[in-house]
């Protein structure tokens, strides 16, 4: 706070630090983009220079139209949106119950949810594989949605609870005095006020589902059902020399996350602290 108030050396140091952080954060992403737009024939001669001598969008074109990229992209979009919608809906219900009711078993359920946040998810990868396999649902995107939804419910619930906690209880009570049933109060008064919270939760869950890799690797083996991370990994082994295409695919994979990130940015501080402190 009081650092770097007047002393020029401190001010210079501060800006140097800011620059260093910025470089550290952005350089890898810049590199991703740079290789993606470097023409193939220049990669080996200029692979490590900071700026290529000529640019091309060929890699993007190839990735989009000559590979299964759009398949993977579509699958991932389907899974992530499905997970985000299902999780947000379910977590909103659970968060509302935690925020507004005092009931028998509440502490136990909260404790269980906290524990699920702590134990290694990989622990259940074998049982889940066998369960899903015995139901004949391997290579099904729906099974991924169900699994991801369950994984994300605890955190999303705590997040939604913190949003509901931020809405005064008086408002619902006033609505009930005004003649609403509890559900009407929820729909007419609480729901409109919690829209930003719902949006933020959607964003969080979407990003989480978008980047999940290990369970998808285990449960999906057919090419047409692969989600983006799985598909991209097979890309890497299949075309291990075609750097430009892989990075172009990487840049494209970044787009949805970044869009959501911009959207949820302002809720990050609020959401994370409530999630973290409660843990």
């Amino acid at each position: 706070m009081t650092v770097a108030r007047s002393k020029p050396i401190l001010t210079a140091g501060k800006y140097a630090a800011l620059l260093a952080y910025l470089t550290f954060a952005l350089f890898p992403l810049y590199w991703l983009l740079k290789i993606a737009i470097t023409p193939d024939q220049l990669i080996f001669s200029e692979g490590t220079t900071l700026w290529p001598s000529s640019l091309t969008l060929d890699n993007f074109r190839t990735v989009l139209f000559q590979t299964d990229f759009l398949y993977y992209f579509g699958n991932s979009l389907y899974v992530s949106l499905g997970t985000a919608a299902a999780t947000t809906l379910i977590a909103a219900g659970a968060g509302y119950a935690f925020s507004r009711f005092d009931f028998g078993g509440k502490k136990i359920i909260i404790a269980i949810m906290l524990i699920t946040q702590m134990f290694p998810l990989l622990m259940i990868i074998a049982p889940i594989y066998k369960m899903v396999a015995s139901l004949g649902l391997l290579n099904s995107l729906t099974s991924l949605i169900v699994v991801y939804t369950a994984f994300n419910i605890p955190f999303a619930t705590f997040l939604m609870q913190s949003f509901f906690d931020g809405i005064p209880k008086d408002l619902e009570e006033a609505a009930m005095m005004d003649g609403c049933s509890r559900f009407q109060a929820l729909r007419k008064v609480i729901f409109p006020l919690t829209l930003p919270g719902l949006g933020a939760t959607l964003g969080f869950v979407f990003t989480a589902a978008w980047s999940e890799l290990l369970f998808a690797l285990m449960l999906i083996s057919k090419n047409e059902a692969m989600t983006f991370p799985v598909g991209l990994l097979t890309f890497v082994s299949k075309f291990s020399v075609d750097w430009g295409q892989m990075m172009a695919a990487g840049v494209l994979a970044l787009i949805p996350s970044c869009l959501f990130f911009i959207f949820i940015q302002r809720y990050l501080v609020q959401g994370l602290t409530s999630g973290a402190v409660k843990g």
Partner: peptide, 23 residues
């Protein structure tokens, strides 16, 4: 600045891994 510095957090894990492997 804040939005840009926080950006790595939004990058899907597998992509961070690939990016750094490439770097």
């Amino acid at each position: 600045f804040q939005a840009l510095v926080f950006l790595p957090w939004a990058v899907p894990t597998f992509l961070s891994a690939l990016t750094w492997a490439w770097l």
